[in-house]
Amino acid sequence: MPELIAFVLLLAITAYSTAGGVDFGAGIWDLLAGPSERGRRARALIDHAMAPVWEVNNVWLVLAIVLCWTGFPLLFQVVFAGLYPLFTFALIGLILRGAFFAFRHIADQPRAHRLADLVFGVSSVLTPFFFAASLGAIASGRLVPFSPMSIAFGLVSVAATAFSGASFLVGDARRYGAEELVGYFRRRAVAAALVLIAVGTVALVTIGLQAPGLLRSMLTGKGLPFALVTMVLTPTVVFLLWRGVYRWYRVLTVAAVGSLVFAWAFAQSPYLVPGQLTIDQAIAPPGAQVLLLIVSAVLLLVIAPAMGLLYYLDQKGALESTEG
């Protein structure tokens, strides 16, 4: 049962990394779009694509936090006691991002609008960086905020979110008939994927230097299948987009990024903090475990159909504004 709860926690983290990553990635491309006419069009598409779903992904984050403190209170304590600066930076980035995304819709003056764009874009880079850096600090087993591994994890996540953001924006450009932006984001998705592969390789070397045990498990142990999936799927998406084959690329993007998270988590299991804290040591007493499993089951039974309904209505166009 403790493993099952750890797995649910991992699912929440993965959902946030993939779904939230698409949002953060869009913000990164917003920042990089620049002041040109084409950049302005790209930003307009990003705005249009994000408007109805942005911030919904925060729910995954809250869920992960709540699962962590109820299910693994000791993990929550040691992680926050050691890594509070990273979480504080990520948190401030998260709020600024949300606030300024909203603000740029109501900003009247061009200067205010540019400021809103800038804050939104920069916080879209910093937030995933600091969240992932905390995972890197955990993986290193030392729980110090800044170390080669925390920085490496942070950089990987920025590349991964840029990759998934661009990949999904290709789809949005196609869906909303912005033909000239399809190629624009396709090239960016390919570039981001190549950066991801490069940064990922550097990260593996860093892990090898700082936590050789973890690297061994990633390349020969429980992490291997997931590491392989990422290593195969990322070039596959590059190939598909390069050739202009617009099928499966979004699903495969999510699978590639999700596998990356799984590769880390499975490689360090049964440790929650390598060398310090295992799942069995940190798990809440049995009563709380039962409640968490019930909550998880309800989540599956109720939330999945509800999200399905939302998705169905959205695809049917039932949720788009009627006038104007």
Partner: peptide, 22 residues
Amino acid sequence: PRMMGRFGSAFGLGFAIEGLAF
């Protein structure tokens, strides 16, 4: 952090339900 470490699994129960409702 010290309150959550010791009492998270009791204090946090309500929040697990709240997370679902949210």
